[in-house]
Amino acid sequence: MDPDDLQAEPLSSGVPDLPPSDIGMSVEPATEAGAESDSSDTSSSSSMLEDDLLVLRRAWINERNSPELYTYEGAALENLMELVDFQLQSLDAQPASIQNDRVKYLVRSYLRTRLNKVEQHPGYVLREMKERLSQAELEYAEGFRSLQDAHVRKSFLDQFPAHLRRVDEETKDGLKMVPEPDMDRAVFCRVRTTVGQFQFDERYVSRQRRPAYLVQTTNMQCVVRTRSS
């Protein structure tokens, strides 16, 4: 099977009340601004913005709705912010447009959602998915983990017998001290390209383009990750 066909995204169930057109709209002024500032590659820059916006929007929706951390969309972020910056420079003293604010909101929300996941499971993220973080996020995750460790250590663990001071052990009945995300949580997913028959817990679902499904994250993982890798 061609890996490019395997594309799926969780639907926006937990996203705040935001019609998709709101974010999509922010593309328009970019075209106008580009036209005004007589740059020769207007069409290509605006379509690039559109693409990056789409990539980021999708990454943002995925990130907000799935328990798992996905690969950092660094290129899209950088391109988008570069264009926003360019727009602010070319518009000079004019008030910042709401569209720029919206792009910034998207970037902010995306990064903060990721940080939130890092904060929830710093040990797990650093152990399992280091390569999905950006450099800054990696530093943050490490800093946060050592901050947490130092906090419990100074609060009580230093008073504990030396044998019992570890913070990453696992008890015999399977309780882990390093919290992990709940991979069995249900997610909505929309099928973007037909991938044919796919097995979910002995139940075959034919994933045509239209319908949306509610499935467990573990089932979806491999499919979604193919897209991000």
Partner: peptide, 12 residues
């Protein structure tokens, strides 16, 4: 960065 990140901006 530290703005209230939950609600998307609606009006300028």
């Amino acid at each position: 960065w530290a703005l209230n990140g939950e609600v998307p901006p609606r009006d300028l």
